[in-house]
Each structure stands twice: as C-alpha cells, then as structure tokens.
Write a protein that binds this DNA or RNA. Structure first.
Length: 427
RNA sequence: GGAAGGGUGUCCGAGUGGUCGAAGGAAACGGUCUUGAAAACCGUCGUGCCAGCAAUGGUACCGUGGGUUCGAAUCCCACCCCUUCCGCCA
C-alpha cells in the first residue's frame, strides 16, 4: 500500500495515477476517513493519558472510592471512543488497500494491454520453406502432449507431457540454473547494459506451493480470487506463481544492507483457474491450469531497484538470444502493469505456428508499496522488490517447437541445450 | 489421526495484577586501552501511530481477538501458529 502521509501530501497525483491504472478510488473519501480517524486517535489518547495518570497515583496504595469511581468513568469513555475509532479505522484500511501503486513517470498511459509499447524487436521472424505447423500439431503427433487423458483424469486445461518434451523441459531448467548462478554470465550482462548492480549469483530455490490467505493478501496477489485454487480444508491456496511464495519469503523481516541484493531463482509448478478465459487458447499447452516456471525474484533498495529491474529484463533477453528465438520487448502501459507494480515489461516470443508474437515472459518492479504491506524492511528503509519470469517453461517450449521445427515434423534442439539433452541435435 | 509442550525486544532468555517498555546475557554500534587486533572496561542500543519545523511530548505494542479490573505480559475465554513424541507415509 501507499504511505498515507504521501497520499495526504499528493492527493491529486495519487487520484490521477490510480485513474490511469483503471482503478476507481475516491482519494477525498479516504482522506476524510483519515481526518476523522486522527481526531478520534487524539481523543482516545487524551483519555488514556488521564487514565494512566490516575493509575500512577494509586500505585502501591489502595485507591480511594473516589479514585475508583473516576477510573470507571474514564474506562467507559475510553471504551466508547475506542469502538468509534475501530469502526472508522476499518473503513479507512479497506479504502487504503484499494489504492494501487503509482506507476513510474516513464510508464505509458493506456486503457488496455493493446496500448503497451513495443520498445525493441530482436531477430527476424523465423522463415520456413514449408508451411509451419503449430506446436500442438507437432507435439501431439510426437506423443509429447496428451490432453485427452489428462481431461479424463484431472479435467480440461491439464496435460500429460511426455518423452522428449520432458527431457527438453529439464534441459532448459538446468541450463537456466547454470547461467544464473554463474557470476561471469551476470558480469557480462551488467557490463553490456551499463548497470549499477551487484553480480551476486541467484540462489536456486524450490519453494512451497501453498500459501496462507493472510500472506497472499499481503503480497497483493490474492485477487482475483476466482482465478486462484483454494484448499478449504486447510485454509490455504495453491500459488499462482513462484513470485507469490518467493516474494513473501522474507515477510516481516529486517534485512541488512550487506545482504542486498537478495536474489532467488525459484522453480515451481503454478496453478491458475483461468476463470473467464473459456474457449480462449484451447490449442496445445497455451493456458493450462497447471504450469511450470522459473522465476527470478530480488529484493533491493531504492537506489538499485530500477537497475535491478533492467538487469532481470536483460537476463530474460540474453536467455532468449542464447536460444536464438526471435522476440519483441514491450513496455507495459498503466492499465497492464498490475496493481502493486510501478513498472513492467513483457517479452513476447515469435511463434511461427501462430504467426504472431505471444507473451512468454514478464518482469515487474514494485518499489516499496508491497514491502509496506509485508513489513519488509532493510536497514535503511523499506525494500524494493523485483519479479521476473526467467522461463515460463510451457511457453518457451512452444517457442522452441515452433521456431525449430523441420519439414518432417521433428524439432531441432537449440545448440545451447544439446549438452543438457544427451548431445541430441534433434528430437 | 493420538498425546504433550511452547509463543516476551535483532537473537537467547527472566518475569508475585500496580515499582514492567519490560531483568540478565549475546550480537551490533561508539569510545578507552593497544603499534594493530583480540580481550577487558565504559557508553549507546525496539517499533508503529498522533501532535510538532524541530527538540520533544503523548499513546500503543510481551502470538491474535475478546473478557475481568480503578489498573493486565501477568487472571479468564476463544482462536492462530510453532515444536516434540507416537501412528501413517514419498
């Protein structure tokens, strides 16, 4: 959430920025509650002070009847005002939590994802001297994807992945872990992009897949709930991204300067109900209820947060370049960056089988907004957090299958992955 | 699933209903001593909120919520969480 003091001082700006993101919040109403709340706090504390003074007089000695009567009167008054305060405070907090994070000034203003701005195109769309197939056609012919049996067992939007596709996934995972734990790899990227950040390697993490309601809400990623899986028996949710369980890992902790940046590379199977997407992306493995991702997560300070964001994007680009997959880079507009985020980038891979660019990775920068809700502090203040997908494995495999397909319906293995898949050049 | 124990400040850990924002220790920071370091000694050492330009003052916080009381870390109730043992199990 935003700092109330900041909102008081910049009411018009916050109102405007919220509107740009598409959020209907009434800042004046919020400030009204804030004013009322502060008046009541003054009243309550004044009464408490009187009570404390009275109590101090009777320390160690038996209070007189008069003092007890006075004490009773004060107690009743305090209780009365405390109830009034609690009611106002509740409304105040609900409203405060609906205020989205402010976008940075260079984020383009837009009403939907259609207004995201392309900032870069890398590589030419792959050309074939035959009609390219979609990943679904190739993979189903190969026996790599079986959605029919998955539907029988688990329902729609699930799949069995089999054979060489599984090998390919594990190859990508191992390749990525090797790269992100390699200081030299990071050094090269940092130098190339002229970033003022540490070359500290990422720590690989296998996180829990479940998350408590309270923590999910503090991450500001619980909504929309219709898109989350809930395990009622235990009052926990299945995480919808490794971000949810990695970003919250240090909740309610203080972090020393010397430990910054904190960098994690998490691998997790994630779960989304994909509510509202019925009939969309039904081909292949575009939009599964369950999908695997490698996620980068870092905690920094105010000074290095933005460069860290640039680093994560640069890493994503580098990985795509090493796989030799054409992509474009989009600067997300205000409507698309998401409530807790201050800035965001998308990487869309070129998919010949779809004849279009499709979102493959995303990177979000969060400033201290989220830290405020999680009470995440470092020794000089509130931490800034960054989240970015290193590889959404399903989407990456779609991109590999479609870009590396042969006329015979096989798939060449990207050079950098060959060592991880037993030296095979084609699957 | 059965049984037991426990949640106090950065950490460990004490705490008869008023003298407890809280002993003691450790860590950290500053200093003395030392060529330097260690040790020793001295000092500092929680957070939120409200008011204030500030100094500062006030208030709250001992898992969470409620209750008893003139007064609660301390008593009562409910809940949450953690740990250990047994059982089951990849």
């Amino acid at each position: 959430m935003l700092d109330i003091q900041f909102i008081r001082d910049n009411a018009d700006l916050v109102q405007e920025k919220s509107k740009q993101k598409g959020y209907e919040v009434d800042i004046q109403q919020l400030l009204g509650f804030d004013k009322e709340r502060r008046e009541l706090i003054g009243k309550v504390e004044e009464l408490r002070q009187q009570r404390n003074e009275l109590t101090a007089q009777t320390k160690g000695v038996k209070p007189s009847d008069e003092q007890i009567a006075k004490g009773r009167e004060l107690r009743d008054k305090v209780t009365d005002f405390e109830h009034k305060l609690a009611a106002i405070e509740k409304e105040y907090e609900v409203l405060l939590k609906t205020v989205p994070n402010m976008s940075l000034s260079d984020v383009p203003i837009g009403k939907s994802e259609d207004e995201n701005q392309e900032v870069k195109k890398q590589g030419e769309p792959t050309k074939f001297d035959f009609e390219p197939k979609s990943h679904a056609e190739i993979a189903e012919a190969k026996g790599w994807i079986d959605k029919e049996r998955a539907a029988k067992v688990a329902g729609s939007r699930f799949a069995y992945l089999k054979g060489d596709l599984v090998k390919l996934q594990f190859a990508i995972i191992q390749f990525t872990i090797d790269k992100l734990t390699d200081t030299e790899f990071l050094d090269a990227i940092i130098k190339e992009n002229n970033l003022q950040v540490s070359n500290k390697p990422f720590t690989p993490v296998l996180p829990p897949y479940m998350i408590r309601t309270e923590v999910y809400d503090a991450m500001d990623r619980l909504e929309p709930r219709e898109d989350r899986y809930k395990l009622d028996q235990d009052d926990v949710w299945l995480q919808g991204s490794a971000e949810h369980v990695l970003g919250s890992m240090h909740m309610r902790e203080g972090i020393d300067d010397k430990d910054l940046p904190v960098r994690y590379l998490g691998y997790a199977t994630s779960f989304r109900r994909e509510a509202g997407s019925y009939g969309k992306d039904t081909e292949g493995i575009f939009r599964m209820h369950q999908f695997d991702k490698l996620e980068m997560e870092s905690i920094t300070d105010e000074n290095t947060g933005l460069d860290e964001h640039k680093l994560l994007v640069a890493i994503q680009e580098k990985l795509m370049q090493e796989l030799k997959i054409p992509y474009r880079l989009l600067e997300k507009c205000t409507a698309d960056i998401g409530k807790p985020n201050a800035k965001g980038m998308d990487i869309d891979a070129w998919l010949p089988g779809q004849n279009q660019y499709r979102e493959t990775h995303t990177a979000d920068y969060m400033t201290d907004y989220q830290s405020r809700r999680m009470n995440l502090l470092y020794s000089k203040g509130l931490a800034h957090t960054n989240d970015a997908t290193a590889f959404a494995l399903g989407r990456t495999m779609i991109a590999i299958i479609e870009n590396y397909q042969t006329a015979e319906g096989n798939v060449n293995v990207p050079e950098v992955l060959q060592a991880y898949i037993g030296g095979k050049t084609q699957i």
